[in-house]
């Protein structure tokens, strides 16, 4: 299994678009955190004390936009198999189809965890620095227990990358899962949640409870429950993907 994971890892990191998507996720998320929080500081200057504002949630705002990078990573990691029929070579090298899928999922999770554990803390820090006097200092942030939602945000990104990868195994192409999932996480799930309470059970709506501590949820889920709902989505998608992938001709 370790041999398979290493082979998958080498396959993906030597594909220029994969490290590029990780780097772009990092740069865009941290830059966005700085710019958004800097302009928020300007708003706070104008509005005075009258505004309802949490510097902690502000520190995670860019994580919300940067998550699109995890969708891209997950989709490309699997979608690459269907470019040039690479999947044929993969199955010749690893004829155990479940083993191949497990190695793929492991590498996607590892790459997402790596990206997230660098990006999330630095984006949060950039945000607090840009907020200036409205931001949290390191000690107040630690006192406020900010490490827990940070770990939650990293976990959320990993789950999202896995969800995207699983959907791509099912779809067997890149365009459809990329379009649907980016639209979902950036806008659609928000809109659906306003239309129906059930929207609160969408994977990203439930999963984002892992790091947005003040977020309202129609089902009153707490952070671990929200994470569990998202993990269930990931598990179901991968189960369907595995059944389909094992049964059909390559």
């Amino acid at each position: 299994m370790l041999v398979d994971v290493r082979a998958e890892g080498r396959k993906l990191v030597t594909l220029p678009v994969v490290p590029l998507s990780m780097l772009a996720t990092f740069v865009v998320t941290v830059a966005l955190a700085g710019i958004a929080s800097w302009s928020m500081a300007g708003l706070l200057d104008d509005a005075g004390a009258g505004m309802d504002f949490s510097p902690e949630d502000e520190g995670f705002q860019s994580v919300h936009f940067g998550q699109a990078g995890m969708v891209v990573l997950g989709v490309l990691a699997v979608g690459g198999e269907f470019a040039g029929n690479q999947v044929r070579t993969s199955l010749l090298a690893m004829p155990g189809r479940l083993r191949f899928l497990a190695a793929k999922a492991a590498v996607v999770a590892l790459l997402a965890a790596l990206t997230a554990s660098v990006t999330v803390p630095l984006a949060f820090t950039a945000s607090q620095i840009a907020l200036g006097e409205y931001g949290m200092s390191l000690s107040t942030a630690l006192d406020a227990g900010v490490l827990t939602p940070m770990a939650g945000a990293v976990l959320y990104w990993v789950l999202l990358a896995l969800l995207a990868a699983g959907c791509t195994v099912l779809a067997r192409n890149t365009v459809a899962p990329l379009a649907v999932l980016v639209a979902l996480v950036l806008a659609l799930s928000q809109i659906l949640s306003m239309v129906t309470d059930l929207g609160g059970l969408l994977p990203d709506q439930a999963g984002s409870l892992l790091y947005l501590t003040d977020k309202e949820n129609a089902f009153g889920l707490d952070a671990p429950q929200g994470g569990a709902v998202m993990a269930a989505w990931v598990a179901v998608v991968w189960l369907l993907a595995a059944v389909r992938f094992v049964r059909r001709d390559a």
Binding site: K11, T14, L15, V17, A83, G84, N85, Q86, T89
Partner: peptide, 10 residues
């Protein structure tokens, strides 16, 4: 096997 089998960007 016949043509293909490699990712074009590799």
């Amino acid at each position: 096997l016949d043509v293909g089998g490699a990712h074009p960007a590799h």
